[in-house]
């Protein structure tokens, strides 16, 4: 299996556009392709692909302690060990659990000297597997989504990736969340290639610097896609690029068709195949195909 991650630091750089387009294009040549939307706090690959309804829902269940009062001696060890404040004990009463705060780390379960903690579950969000077909060629979209108000994104990302791996794809494309936190670094931790999407503005440059810091430390092979090429000044990115390792650089021109495709939920490369941006994406996809083959 080959695994590629598409990431981009801040939101709005066009990360999802690149990921969905590459999945659509590469599925012409690759049979078992899985695209993972690992942006659990605001997944939108399906929106860009024009999918109304996600399918095959499964809950993301985290461990949640439940106190077995027949065994609990009220020693308070679990409360001390819990890092998230999810366990609470008033005086000498039995501990109570705050499901929303619990990260499901299971430390309390292992820490209890009396085996008084049983495993229950807490539903953090859902994963979906939706087939996506264009012109007779299909791939699968795995989407992870947190329930509003839930806070623990990283374990959710982990479960979403696991569900995608269960499908045993030949090629896995991970669209990570926005930002530079560990919910994002988890998305590309195991990728063979990281495609970083940025834009030629000082905002883009700053975030590019942050994300490349991580890819460098993880020793990743990196390709860069400069989106909205033409709005800004490419020299802004050069100082950043001098500091980091990037293997290839691509450009996607600034193109009104992208804005339109996005606003009307029409996949760009299907509905505007001859637009300049589509042609640039096709070029990236061709190069990728070559890279995958060798």
């Amino acid at each position: 299996m080959t695994s590629i991650a598409v990431t981009g630091g801040k939101g709005g750089t066009g990360k999802s556009l690149v990921a969905t387009s590459l999945a659509t294009l590469l599925s012409k040549n690759i049979d078992d392709l899985v695209l993972v939307d690992a942006d659990l706090e605001g997944p939108n690959d399906h929106v860009i692909l024009g999918i109304e309804e996600l399918e095959n829902r499964e809950p993301i269940t985290l461990f949640l302690p439940m106190i077995d009062t027949t065994k609990c001696t009220r020693c308070g060890v679990c409360v001390k060990i819990c890092d998230t404040g999810a366990l609470f004990m008033a005086g000498k009463a039995y501990p109570i659990v705050f499901p929303r705060l619990c990260s499901g780390c299971k430390a309390c379960y292992y820490a209890c000297p009396y085996g008084a903690i049983r495993g229950a579950g807490h539903i953090l969000g859902y994963t979906y597997v939706t087939p996506v077909c264009f012109g007779g060629r299909c791939f699968k979209l795995v989407t992870g989504m947190l329930i509003e108000g839930e806070e623990h994104t990283p374990p959710g990302v982990y479960r979403t990736l696991q569900r995608a791996l269960e499908l045993k794809p030949e090629l896995l494309i991970v669209d990570t969340g926005a930002g530079t936190g560990n919910a994002v670094s988890m998305g590309f931790r195991d990728s063979d290639l990281v495609i970083v999407v940025t834009e030629p503005t000082p905002l883009g440059a700053h975030d590019l610097d942050s994300i490349l810091e991580v890819t460098d430390a993880m020793n990743k092979q990196v390709w860069l896609v400069v989106n909205k090429y033409g709005i800004g000044d490419i020299t802004i990115l050069e100082t950043v690029l001098r500091r980091h390792r990037v293997e290839k650089i691509f450009h996607i021109p600034y193109d009104k068709a992208v804005v339109e495709a996005y606003a009307y939920s029409k996949p760009l490369i299907i509905h505007y195949p001859s637009s300049p941006a589509s042609r640039a994406l096709m070029k990236i996809s061709d190069e990728l195909m070559g890279w995958i083959k060798h």
Partner: peptide, 9 residues
């Protein structure tokens, strides 16, 4: 906000 909790399993 009501978290969804499932029974011990």
């Amino acid at each position: 906000f009501e978290p969804i909790v499932i029974r011990p399993d």
